[in-house]
């Protein structure tokens, strides 16, 4: 870990302005991912801007019947919120499927969206990694890739986005609200928030330098049955091999998003039209053009079968 300066931000706009004018600055909230990465010198910020004291920790109802979740709402609190449990159960289920109780007590809504990949080569500074060190190469390609992406990959990177919460957010068509260094605000559709790696895998998302997430909003509830089925190598405390977030209506229509498959939460709206026809038809469209490795080709079959289990339960 490199020595760093520490500042406590006084307002979201001040935090963004400070971050923009301070090279090497990073925001810190729960720190559950950033601090680990700093210890390994994968992240080497020279300045940490602590946003924990900003009053962004409330969940409020919006005028159009949705919810506005403050950036600093802790995972535990979000998952436990009565309105979330009642109207957005997929979100609660996704959150409690991730990490551990202790981590969820610290992790924030915004921070969780920014969780970085768990690719083991990203985590070993001795190995080439275009995400950690642009231009150095990708050791994961041709290496141990069981956990890694099967679709939307590039020649530069096959990392996956590791989180659970964001898969549900993507399913629910959430919107990320930010403040920019000039004090202006913007709204980013969750579909446009995470990026595919392309030839710039060091960029996980579309935030600009200094831009700070202030809230995530959910549109009005979808109804239907909510599912988050996470499949992993042990029963708890592991990243998903594959996860399926779904909302299924009585008539068999619905939405589905997948975790563990790509560099971002994977949702193909065109595939959802096939949901009434079943898992195979849906997966065929959702994963058309997939580029798995020898190690992770099983994820395609697993995703389809996991979706089949969800649809089976939805009918039951």
């Amino acid at each position: 870990m490199k020595a760093f300066e520490y500042t406590r931000a006084s307002s979201p706009a001040d935090a963004a302005a400070l971050a923009a004018k301070t090279p090497g600055a990073r925001f810190i909230a729960g720190g559950t991912n950033l601090l680990d990465l700093m210890k390994l010198e994968i992240e080497t910020p020279t300045h940490l801007i602590d946003v924990n004291k900003l009053a962004l920790d409330r969940i409020e109802e919006t005028s159009d019947g949705g919810l506005r979740i403050g950036a600093l709402v802790r995972n535990t609190d979000l998952a436990a919120d009565k309105r979330v449990r009642r109207d957005y159960a997929v979100l609660t289920r996704a959150i409690v499927a991730g990490a551990s109780g202790q981590l969820r007590n610290k992790a924030t809504t915004a921070g969780n969206l920014l969780q970085r990949t768990r690719c083991p080569y990203f985590y070993d500074p001795n190995q080439p990694c275009n995400k950690r060190k642009p231009g150095s190469g990708c050791a994961a390609i041709g290496g141990f890739s069981r956990q890694l992406a099967v679709i939307g990959t590039s020649k530069a990177c096959i990392a996956t986005y590791p989180g659970d919460m964001a898969i549900a957010m993507r399913l629910l068509d959430a919107t990320v609200e930010t403040v920019k260094p000039d004090g202006s605000t913007r709204k980013i559709a969750i579909a446009d928030f995470h990026r595919l790696p392309g030839d710039t895998p060091h960029l996980d998302n579309t935030l600009q330098t200094g831009e700070l997430i202030t809230a995530v909003t959910l549109p009005k509830p979808l109804g239907g049955k909510h599912f988050y089925h996470k499949v992993r190598d042990r029963a708890s405390y592991a990243f998903a091999l594959v996860s399926v977030a779904a909302v299924v209506q009585k008539d068999g229509t619905g939405r589905v998003a997948f975790g563990g498959m790509a560099h971002k939460p994977w949702r193909v709206e065109a595939a959802e039209a096939a949901l009434p026809k079943g898992a195979a038809a849906t997966a065929k469209i959702a994963f058309a053009g997939a580029t798995p490795t020898h190690d992770n080709a099983f994820k395609l079959q697993l995703a389809e079968r996991t979706l089949a289990a969800v649809l089976h339960e939805a009918r039951g």
């Binding site: 083991p120 985590y123 070993d124 190995q127 050791a139 290496g143 190598d233 708890s236 592991a238």
Partner: peptide
């Protein structure tokens, strides 16, 4: 990793052992 000659999953996130739920 048979190219670089080392155990890749060298932490307790990558090297999984049973948790209570198992």
């Amino acid at each position: 990793d048979k190219r670089f000659g080392y155990f890749v999953n060298h932490d307790l996130a990558g090297y999984e052992v049973p948790v209570h739920a198992d």
